[in-house]
Nucleic acid binder design. Structure first.
Lengths: 340, 340
DNA sequence: AAGCTTTGTGCAAAGCTTTGTGCAAACGTT
DNA sequence: AACGTTTGCACAAAGCTTTGCACAAAGCTT
């Protein structure tokens, strides 16, 4: 059990003045005599006084705390975004309370409730993969609690969000593959209801069209984005009568799993099958061959989400909905540049 | 700005009873008539009442919040440990507030202060790399604020901690390399003041001794564990008159950097240089060749640290200092098993 | 019917801070 | 000396919950 920290009351009784005098002294209130201000400040410094945030929270009806709900905190993508959120939050005197949904709809709801019960000042959320019903955001929106989505978003007319331009990025990736000789470009996608899945497929199809390639249903496989799911998908693609000469994966996990399967079959990357996807700087350079990829500006996504949220928290106007689309960069590395 | 949440007072005035009656009704106090209990409960449920944690915190002098300070939250090692902490914390109704020191002594101190000002019920800390002075923990220890260190620890007589048996693990790695034919085993170490550095060097030297190899000062290089530092260290080792035939790296970053440099020089892993180190499951299998490594039970380390801390928070006895040493496993993969 | 017990609620304090209002003492003026 | 102003501080309420204690009304006993 912790010892109680010093309060205004302690200082007041030690100095034989009232609590309000101490409070005002610490803020240099003009009504007070310089002598008492000096005395109070000295004792406060000596005793390491800091205002009790619980009392302040009760008074001001705010906690200087923002809640973050992510599918998981281990994946580099999310931890890096969290890092960006932390950066901005800390710079503005806010704390972040993190909880992970483990991609579960039920846990996402629980986490949200917990954070609301904790009275966070706002929420930054990335939807769980399982989440297809969005009604649990009704009460949050209705209660006008500041809320920002990132990456996997919903209800974008009512809630601000930070995303990358998935359509554009996917289109770019597809064209990149074509330019480097690929003619049968496959796509391992995510669950069909996720916005990122839809948008990346859209970009993929646009890219194909621009390159004069026709969309082949066999070359598009949906997965749950698990390692196992991606392995199955990859093998399905590779065992087609006319297998792909390039695969575009929807995210990290899918890519790494596909890479393993391709190698296991004795195929060469990129010569037999080129491989590209969405991931981040770090992972792209750690695998072999280095991965050509759309790298998410993860840290910046986190920063932007936090900025958006803090604006909402600080403004007393009604919600101003904003969609921020971050620029994603295609970085050309080894996995897509065929030698032959 | 958020709308105010419903309080006991709201329910009380709606029902025309006193606040204390509402409070008691919600806990089925025997003094109350069943009728009023029922009425209160119904309205509370309808209005989604939950106790205000700020008021409770003020009253009980606890926040149900634990502060976590890590060097960074992006590295898989830490994010995975955080995940373990979250797991136990959530199961016990605690929230975690995370902040990262970015390996900076100054930020570590700031973070600690912020969290204390926030009145967290306890702290879980991994020291920043820069931290060589530990006096900022004096006041925390003196104030009897529950505290647990993990991985990089200090003041172990006064503060509980969770570590892995670095000496044993490093010894095991060294012997493993010897068994697979290595005779000039180098070690890329961390900064000399960190406990993990010291312990792993100790294990390394014990291992050498047990294998009948003599310690060669040239084969031990200290780094700041950055990518660049590790690259320099690797090149220094490889350009020795008698270069190593195996390198044992102190952590992830060092390993990956070394791996890149070795490949860049056109050397083969493991045939020319075997490579082993400390890392985690995920990264070890993503690189090529797959890395033989001591994998940290990261999630479990986090869980254990959280359990230790919660025990300390809940007990009203004085601090009971415990050292928990987790078993680390050597997993044999491709990077150390020479073919020739 | 008077007195006692039981039953059901309300009051108030504590935990901590901020801030509008009130008030006493000291100072100034004439 | 008497009155008015300024100065310097204290009081109290609000924000929310829990809990010991007080108290009123109802029921019971004799």
């Amino acid at each position: 059990m912790t010892k109680r920290r010093v309060s205004l009351k302690d200082i007041a009784s030690q100095l034989g003045v009232s609590v309000s005098t101490v409070s005002r002294a610490l803020k240099d209130h003009p009504d007070l005599s310089p002598a008492i201000i000096e005395k109070v400040k000295q004792l406060a410094a000596k005793w390491n006084y800091t205002p009790n945030p619980l009392a302040m929270g009760l008074l001001k009806q705010q906690t200087n705390t923002i809640g973050v709900v992510v599918p998981d905190i281990v994946t580099h993508f999310y931890s890096s975004i969290i890092s960006g959120i932390e950066d901005i939050a800390k710079a503005n005197g806010y704390y972040i309370v993190i909880s992970s949904s483990q991609e579960s709809y039920k846990k996402e709801k629980e986490n949200l409730n917990n954070l609301l019960n904790l009275r966070v000042d706002g929420l930054i959320v990335c939807l769980a993969q399982e989440t297809t019903d969005y009604t649990h955001y009704d009460s949050i929106i209705e209660a006008e609690i500041p809320l920002v989505f990132f990456d996997r978003v919903c209800r974008t007319e009512e809630v601000s969000s930070v995303v990358i331009d998935n359509v554009e990025a996917a289109k770019e990736l597809t064209i990149h593959l074509y330019k480097h000789g690929a003619r049968r470009i496959a796509h391992i996608a995510g669950p069909s209801f996720l916005n990122i899945t839809k948008e990346r497929i859209e970009g993929y199809r646009k890219g194909l069209q621009l390159c004069g390639l026709t969309f082949d249903q066999n070359l598009l496989v949906h997965t749950n984005m698990s390692i196992e799911g991606a392995a199955v998908a990859t093998n399905k693609l590779l065992s087609l009568k006319y297998p792909p000469d390039a695969i575009f994966g929807v995210n990290d996990t899918v890519i790494f799993s596909a890479m393993k399967e391709i190698k296991r079959k004795g195929l060469k990357i990129p010569d037999d099958v080129a491989l590209v996807g969405f991931t981040d700087e770090f992972h792209a350079t750690v695998v072999e061959p280095n991965l050509t990829a759309i790298t998410h500006p993860t840290f910046e996504i986190g920063q932007e989400a936090a900025r958006l949220l803090l604006n909402e928290i600080k403004s007393d106007k009604a919600r101003t909905v904003q969609q921020i689309s971050m620029q994603a960069k295609l970085i050309e590395r080894e996995s897509s540049v065929k030698l032959k």
